[in-house]
Amino acid sequence: MRVAISATGRTLEDDVDPRFGRCRYFIIADTESMQYEAMDNAAAAAGGGAGVSAGQAIAAKGVEAVLTGNCGPNAYQVLEAVGIKVVTGVSGTVKEAIDGYRTGRYKESSQPNVPDHFGMGGAAGR
């Protein structure tokens, strides 16, 4: 089964990026064969709506689940609309995340776990 993991690098040894919409890369991996591809997250530097944009890119990849640290309301709405499961609270390396998902260590979330703009880093605005 195919999953997408938000990642800080392009390999299975890199860490899971705690942000979904503004992560550097996505790793699209097959949990059985461990074959994978890395893609740049074009939404990482979006002025706004990064979660919506990243969510659409992942939806086009036909994955069953997203493994990430945190997922905000807009991204969650996009992923939910196409029936992609969202697993939040994932950390460690990408490989550990895939192993954890395959062995049923994670539970999917039924709602976003952080408010919007969470992945912008620090206090926003003023």
Binding site: G49, V52, Q56, A59, A81, V82
Partner: peptide, 9 residues
């Protein structure tokens, strides 16, 4: 330009 619309299927 603001990702305010998403079309998914």
């Amino acid at each position: 330009a603001y990702n305010a619309i998403a079309v998914l299927g």
